[in-house]
Design a protein around this nucleic acid. Structure first.
Lengths: 122, 122
DNA sequence: TGGGTAGCTTACCTGAAAGTGGGTACCCTC
DNA sequence: GAGGGTACCCACTTTCAGGTAAGCTACCCA
């Protein structure tokens, strides 16, 4: 599939206009923690504690707010089991999985080329 | 090409470790203005003024610093012609074009689904 | 009685990102 | 000689993403 910028413009109007939905969604999923949380969930369903450990360096506050944003966007589902101790599971929705199908090749490319891109040491 | 998270882990070590090159590069290219500048340059070579107009809402300061970051990463080339008035052109490098090949499908998908993702009004 | 666990929320605060407004240099046109 | 265009840079200010730390629920264990 060859995608051109012109095509994007045609389908979605203006990507370059401030405050358009495309920019908002991009801000959510391309945010520092958004990518990493989505990435972690690509593996499969994870619990709160597992996510914390998986996404190294994220604070509880940021994990909570990132998850809430992605849930509101319909990319992630939260399932809570009223047990003791409480158990809550997070997983990608169909939409989220569709998204990650497009995101993974990008992340993989970045992972492969990261060392040659980042000036040594920085 | 099916890419799994496990594969990414294998090729690049830990995406989830703080301060690793992959996270740094992701921060550059997935930043608010980084994506939009790269996107604008996908069309072809652009001059400073054209970029400003294309990427609606970017300030001169942010445009300058975004371009400097992307140039340092080897994703964008700056060519200046010592004319009067000065003329400077920005374009993607081969690396940048490779990157955008992976980024465009993602952005296109987001553009198509943005309206259904963002809760009406937000 | 007290500690432990899981999954959060709230309040507070800081530091980096981003916006604002000015300045520079050079030449051209009016 | 006033004003405008191009491509910036710098200092100042504001905003907000993000970090820190505490508290809370509700049960179990000892």
């Amino acid at each position: 599939m060859v995608v051109s910028l012109a095509e994007i413009r045609r389908t979605s109007g203006e990507v370059f206009v401030e405050g358009c939905p495309t920019r908002v969604v991009l801000d959510h999923i391309m945010s520092k923690w958004g990518v990493l949380v989505l990435l972690a969930l690509t593996d499969g369903t994870l619990r709160w504690g597992e996510l914390r450990r998986e996404v190294q360096g994220i604070s509880e506050k940021m994990l909570a707010s990132t998850l809430r944003t992605l849930e509101a966007d319909g990319l992630v589902v939260r399932t809570s089991y009223p047990e003791v101790p409480p158990r809550v599971e997070y997983a990608l929705t169909d939409l989220g999985r569709e998204l990650m199908e497009r995101m993974l090749p990008l992340v993989e490319w970045v992972a492969v080329h990261a060392e040659e891109i980042v000036p040594a040491g920085a």
